[in-house]
Amino acid sequence: MAQIEKNEVVEADRTAVARPASMARKQPMQQRARERLDKILSSASDLIARTGSDRLKMGELAERVGISIGSLYQYFPDKSAIIRSLAERYNLESRVCISNALDTVHDVEGLKSAYLDLIDQYYALFLSEPVMRDVWSGMQADKQLMALDLQESRLCATMLADAMKRAFGDIDRAEVEASALLIWQLGESTMRLAISLDRVEGDAMVEAFKRMTMRELLSMQAEC
């Protein structure tokens, strides 16, 4: 699949996710407005990384960006909308990573290689954007954002399930989807734990996750 086609598929998946009520109000069209939106989200990310999502204050964010609180509210009605927008950005980046890794899988050996490589790429993404852990924590405090997070996990798990089905062939789809969703949820939790530890221990957690989940994948191969 060409890169532009992958991006179109990922974008379609992104827009398919149900939107909770709390979201960005202003969709900027002009370059200056887009730059301001990017500055708001970048500043919010910095503040969340420093103090955590629960301590993010709209007034402090407006001051950091250099705009009035009223101008900030033109873009985002509340803190949940900011966390949602940050999550959507990271989710889109994650989905592109998953799509690139799994789209070419057609056999078991290809699945094993692509899966292990995907875990390494995903871990590198979390290491480069540790604020992803704090954004996730902020989503767990809001029921609508929790639902969004689960839908995102299902989308990612479906990509993994599709690759597993192509690799294993004649296997129960429901079983594959259940395993894929569990693997994905455990993987996200592992990444958030790993970046909370020192690098040596974090690396060990990721390697342990690889061994555990590879055993699950191979056990499914044995059932075919």
Rank of each mutant, 00 (worst) to 15 (best):
T51S: 08
E223S: 11
A33W: 04
Q144G: 13
S22N: 00
E5G: 06
A222E: 10
I40F: 00
A49Q: 12
D117A: 14
D149R: 15
D172W: 04
F209R: 06
L182P: 07
Q30K: 03
V135G: 08
A12C: 04
M132V: 06
R154V: 13
S22A: 05
E93M: 10
P130D: 12
V96H: 02
I171N: 04
L47H: 02
S80A: 15
R173W: 00
E175G: 15
I69K: 15
D198F: 12
Q30I: 01
E216Q: 08
R19Y: 00
G187W: 02
A147S: 09
D134M: 14
L118W: 09
R215F: 04
N100C: 09
V10N: 01
L150D: 11
M146I: 09
D149A: 15
G138M: 06
Q3D: 08
A178T: 13
D134Q: 14
D107E: 13
V176D: 03
V65R: 14
A87T: 14
A147M: 04
Q121G: 10
L102R: 05
S179A: 05
F209M: 09
K112C: 11
E88Q: 10
R173V: 12
M164S: 08
V105C: 11
R166S: 03
A141P: 05
V206N: 01
S128H: 03
S68H: 03
F126K: 06
M132A: 05
A114C: 12
E175M: 15
D162Y: 03
T213K: 09
S137V: 14
L197V: 15
K165L: 14
S153W: 00
V10I: 11
